[in-house]
Design a binder for these strands. Structure first.
Lengths: 343, 343
DNA sequence: TTGAAAGCGCTAACAC
DNA sequence: GTGTTAGCGCTTTCAA
């Protein structure tokens, strides 16, 4: 495998450790030999073998990240944040795409453990705690983002207050005069989906609104789910005047159904959701949405790991709760007298 | 570092190598000892140290990927494809975000080399070949996607025919009756940007159209570039009737300028671009665009590396040219009599 | 069928 | 200042 320490040591007729010293800038070496070594290194195109270094130092200088969907721009931004901080700290990052498959997630957790990652950042799609037990006694820090496991007390967490954000979003709809609210959320074993429903519920109750159980749709955080759930509602006699979707894809699907039915947004049905971050500026209608600071979530998560690496015996766990942004747009704004009631 | 081979060997009073054998399923071991070992492994929660394995086998079972922007969904999809194939072959993938910074890209190339990656997939932002020289004699395969370096003969490549796709897109505009075409492209040291301009040019010439040099805008593959270039054109007396953007962000910016000016798409200015893959279904106008098979690009690139790993002495390099899809949408379709000429 | 031992490429204690 | 040497945790000959 190409050129290594001993090659250049032999070439210069000096010991391997002297060469190592100048490479690592550790210990003293005479200016003269240093020169010769540096020259030889360049000449030979020597590159230290990071695997060997990692084995020796017992750290791969690597973070592991597991997300449900790499092509989703929310996670893309999370990755960007993680990568940035990792790189600033001379670490690399291994990405794993669980595809929302809990089995796959589990394999990855294991694999990353074996790869001796410095820490793990994970947007889990389950709530299974046993999975993470091995991490606890391996001493490898693990930071949860987005979805939380049940026993989050023993781990670091960086997230937003989903219930509160959901409450605010719901309140916005109620303030707009809506009585008939429907919600489409995701798998209830994912905490985000569950907390967003909770926030919706508590706001409705707080405001004396009736939550109609048949207008609680549970889908898969995908466009198809949003579409079919909305479609089924639209086939009934009474339809909601406002729809809250727990993420953007669910809403895009719902909107498709609404448009196909010939209804107007927001006049017939107002729409709001999480994560509709419009990077194009061309979405129509423009969506009222809770925007999470995705990149920041990633960078803070990575930062926590870096901190733990420097301070191994940190016993306290932290829960970082970031502030999302509520962006109010045309999809939920009713101009006076502009509304067609459906009955 | 937690439990290791020697621990369970000692516990069972057998040799380390026997334990290794049952873990790897290599060599014969009596059924009885195998049982005892398996039991102990489970009991101890033993996890093999992949770093040590990698050092021994001289392969990290890892792919390196360098992309300009992880939050861009095109690259997100590429990553997804790479990760999928890597995972199927029991490899992990290290991601690096160059941020379109050639210096950073260079550092990453070096770093990944040191990390002993099995192969490198890169969407380079430069055309600098020296950078990749070290790879050549390290024997680590490198696959270029998206942007190509100058001397692509010595490397594998998976891409689309940018010039042809660009030609087709331009031809579509000409067929729509446009005479005054403008193009906004990216940095000319990126082959995609350059080839797309080339394709535009050759189509214009082929069709006897004059290419107006002041309507060739060169920006940065970002929304701001598209906006400012378009804006400057709109401030002049004569404005184009059609705009071709070399990627989606450039176009989104251009559209912003067009709308601000009070002009209509496509009636006043028709718009087309590369990579406007609308996953929301809500973009208005819907964009006529060349869509690249991003995930497939990633998976094929990874596949090439996996193949090279199995067949080290493969001397031939391959150039895989994938077929993109031209999606024709309202942003460039003129209904008869619907056009306002600007002079 | 099992064990001893060499060694993957490097770092770091320890000696000179 | 420089060299010798003992590992890091594992796989894999080679012997027994």
């Amino acid at each position: 495998m190409s050129v290594q320490l001993k090659d250049i040591a032999k070439h210069l007729n000096i010991s391997i450790s002297t060469v190592s010293r100048v490479i690592n800038g550790t210990g003293r070496v005479s200016a003269e030999t240093r020169e010769r070594i540096l020259k030889a290194i360049k000449e030979f195109g020597y590159q230290p073998n990071e695997i060997a270094r990692s084995l020796k130092r017992k750290s791969a200088h690597t973070l592991g990240v597991i997300v449900p969907d790499l092509s989703n721009s929310f996670y893309g931004n999370v990755m960007k944040g993680v990568e940035k901080v990792a790189s600033e700290n001379e670490h690399t990052v291994i990405v794993c795409n669980s595809g929302e498959d809990i089995g796959k997630e589990e394999e990855y957790v294991q694999l990353l453990l074996q790869k001796q990652v410095t820490g793990l950042v994970i947007a889990t799609v389950g709530a299974n705690m046993e999975l993470f037990d091995q991490y606890k006694n391996s001493g490898i820090p693990i930071v949860f983002i987005d979805n939380m496991p049940q026993m989050k007390e023993n781990f670091d967490v960086v997230t937003i207050d989903n219930a509160k954000a959901s409450y605010d979003l719901t309140e916005h709809l109620i303030r707009q005069g809506h009585e008939k609210l429907a919600i489409i959320t995701g798998p209830q074993n994912q905490s985000t989906a569950e907390e967003r429903l909770q926030g919706f519920r508590s706001c409705m109750e707080q405001n004396g609104r009736l939550v109609r159980e048949h207008w609680i749709g549970v889908g898969e955080f995908k466009r198809e789910s949003g579409y079919s759930i909305m479609k089924s509602w639209l086939e009934q006699d009474e339809i909601p005047t406002a729809v809250f979707a727990a993420n953007d894809f669910l809403l895009y699907g719902a909107i498709k159904a609404i448009i196909e039915k010939g209804l107007k947004i927001p006049q017939d049905i107002a729409c709001v959701c999480f994560d509709a971050n419009d990077e194009t500026g061309l979405l129509r209608p423009q969506i009222t949405s809770i925007i999470q600071p995705a990149e920041k979530i990633g960078s803070i998560a990575a930062d926590i790991i870096m901190r733990r690496e420097k301070n191994k015996d940190l016993k306290m766990f932290q829960k970082v709760v970031l502030e999302p942004t509520l962006i109010i747009n045309e999809s939920s704004l009713i101009r006076k007298g502009d509304r067609n009631r459906d009955e």
